[in-house]
Structure formats: structure tokens, C-alpha cells
Amino acid sequence: MLTVIITLAVTASIFGLILAYSSVRFKVEGDPVVDKIDTLLPQTQCGQCTYAGCRPYAEAIANGEADINQCPPGGEATIIALADLLDVEVKPLNAENGEVKTLPTIVRIDEQVCIGCTLCIQACPVDAILGAAKQMHTVIESECTGCNLCIPPCPVDCIHIFEVKPTIRNWTASLPDAEFVAPSAG
């Protein structure tokens, strides 16, 4: 009787140790949910969601600190995708974070007016503004995400919003109307 108990206990402990070792050895790194949320966000790093960028916002959503409707650049499409991924209700964009833009925009600096104060360079989250103190600044249009964060700091209001005209290079087919979106497969 005692042999049975001891044998079983010892064998089970050895197996437990093997499993404990392999759970450390074959540990899966990273939280895959944060990565999935991050890929759905538009990566404008605009900070309109009140977080420092898209990745911190994704982490906040994964931790349940932030709601899914705080991303104006992503708009309704991002909210629907996030609701689908997280299995929660779709809700309209939170107006406190901004408005949805129908067309993608970029900013340009009126170079005649610019005084070279560098304030907009510090505000730009994606380093799309080129310039130095007392030198004229300019926006690298291919890098600009249209977050408009550089507009409030400008002391001379020389930054203006332009809609991006679709060209052969950046044209994409427009999304269908929301009512025609197929229900996700169950």
C-alpha cells in the first residue's frame, strides 16, 4: 500500500517537474491580442485617442482601460473591425476624440509665412516635418498621416489642411456602404 502511494507520488512529481521545465522552455512570448489590435489601427500615431500612439492605445484596449471608439483616423471601419475581433458591440466614434474624415488629408506649410520656430516639428508624431531653427520648414507629404497635431502649436497659422487627391499611385477602391457590409461568418 505504502509503495503504491510513494511510487505514484514520486512519478507524478517527476512528470510535474518535466512539464514545469517545458512550460518555461516553450513559453509563448508576447500578448498576441495586443498585436492583433495594433494591426487593425491605422498607425497614424496621432494621439487623438489620448494615448501616445497606436501601440499604447492597443495595449489600453487589451487591458480594458480604453474603449474601441477613440480612433478618429480609423473611423467606423476600424471600430467595426475591433468590435469583431473583441466580440463587443459596435458603437459610434467618441466625439471627444475627433471627427471622422471622409477623405484622407495632409498638411502643407505656407513657406512664405513660416518663421522657423520648430514648434510643429516637436508636435509631429511621425517626424514628417523637416526644418531647423530660423529656417523654413516643410512637410514630407509621403510621411504625413493627416493627424493635424502640428496645427495648434503654430504661432503664425501657416499650416493648412489639404485633401489628398487620388493619383494612380495611391488610389484605392472605396469601401461599400455600411448597409451592404456582409455579416461576419458565425
Binding site: I18, L19, S22, S23, F26, K27, V28
Partner: peptide
């Protein structure tokens, strides 16, 4: 053990 290996 197999589950851990497959997951990884």
C-alpha cells in the same frame, strides 16, 4: 507536453 510544443 505536445500542447506546449504545438503552441510554441
Amino acid at each position: 507536453f505536445t500542447e506546449m510544443v504545438v503552441h510554441k
